[in-house]
Design a protein around this nucleic acid. Structure first.
Lengths: 128, 128
DNA sequence: GTCGTATTTAACATTCAGGTTAAATACAGC
DNA sequence: GCTGTATTTAACCTGAATGTTAAATACGAC
């Protein structure tokens, strides 16, 4: 049991709005802890821990500049998120397209006589 | 305060390996709760709650087929994840490219005389 | 060494996530 | 109405996440 994927940490890190805001800020360029903390009302230790979470998830790396620890976004980690998400989404859409082909093919073949009524039920929101 | 974005729920939902596995399974096609539960050792109520989380995050929709509640992946939600992630990543990479241009321009202009040593410190792992 | 600035660690409180079992609900078929 | 199957709700436990304040650490400048 107990699967553990690096994606666990990445998705979890991005689930927090403060951390996403930090990531967005870092997309504009490197920043120190104080700079990153400025827009928020929470305490510095809280920010420091958010940064540790981001670092542990591989989303940022940290440098050293005297007593400052500037943070830098790691685009790599973001790309991994996109890859999993898009891979999954495309699998679904391809399957959906195949289903569409099948249904269209069926409809073209014969105008339907007997519906055995197996599988495929209402989901309210249907793609055309 | 207290920001609340729909992305909070989506990222949080995908942070759990069981839920990601369910999503991957659903990318292959709709499935009932029992079918989704089969690969896991955890109890049915636990699965049921995972599904509620996924539904609340907009990642799945649910139909009705007699006493079954088949689940269907909502590709839409996945696309939103990709959008945020790629938007952020591209912002960073564009900025990085601009920085690269600037540095290359600087280097072409003069072979560097005096380094004022402001900004930009070591991050161990540097892009060339 | 002392001081001021930047950041982290420690100790603690509170809330939330994820799991369990037992009981309830929904529904088709007889 | 009773039964079997599918799924959810209720009540509960445990551990992890997030925030706080106070104290510690790291480092440049004097």
């Amino acid at each position: 049991m107990s699967n553990a994927s690096p994606l666990d940490a990445t998705f979890a890190a991005l689930a927090d709005p403060t951390r996403r805001a930090i990531v967005e800020r870092l997309a504009q360029g490197d920043a120190t802890v104080l700079e990153l903390a400025a827009p928020f009302q929470i305490s510095l230790p809280a920010i420091s821990r958010h940064l540790k979470v981001l670092e542990h998830a591989g989303l940022i790396s940290r440098g050293r500049d005297a007593q400052r620890r500037p943070c830098r976004l790691r685009a790599e980690a973001l790309r991994e998120v996109t890859q999993w998400t898009e891979h999954t989404r495309r699998a679904w859409e391809e399957r959906f397209d195949r289903l569409g082909d099948y249904l269209r093919e069926l409809q073209a073949r014969e105008p339907i006589t007997d519906t055995p009524k197996e599988e495929e039920e209402d989901h309210g929101d249907e793609q055309s």
